[in-house]
Amino acid sequence: MKFRTFTFAASIAVLATTAVAHKGATGVLLERMNGMLAMGKATKAIAPMMRGLEDYDADRTTDYAAVLQTHSGDAMLALFPEGMNAAPSVAKDVIWTNWEDFSVLSSQLETYAMALGLAAQNGLGDAGASDGSMMDGDMADMMGGAVVEEKTLQTLASLSVSTLFAQSAQVCSACHTKFRAED
């Protein structure tokens, strides 16, 4: 009973927060902000498991991957029509002048989401390990000079879930760094 009461209160709180954060947003603006919020909520919910603080559950990983996939790739791009960037949007206009990079990041997130879904049964792996691509002794990479090779879905799907989760979050952060205005 207490749990249900708490859940209801938490839901109200989330809805209230959403209403405040997205105040004034309508149409496609509201849709894309809700999409981002959905990914953030899902990430918050599953992060403790990905950090090894909770028992690993492959089904939760599958569900999480589906959320990311739903809101990435072409689905995300469709929510950024040119010229639709009025307040309260926090998107930077550079999205539309650098659409190629934005598209690449959106596509990368979709690929990582698909790989996470495929890798769900691989197990969590070492939750605290580095992302695997940068700490392998490649000095050219450490000094910033490596050529970044695009990884195939099959290559990614062979990685551990924790690595894929970390790298997918890094894609989110890279996109926010480049294309989202900060408060």
């Binding site: 990430t43 918050k44 919910a45 605290g128 989760f165 970390a166 979050a169 760094t177 989202r180």
Partner: peptide
């Protein structure tokens, strides 16, 4: 973990300078 992934306690990820 945030210094590795950019994930904040809210589930959002860093942007801006910290990103």
């Amino acid at each position: 973990y945030a210094l590795q992934t950019g994930i904040m306690p809210s589930g959002d990820t860093f942007g801006g300078g910290m990103g």
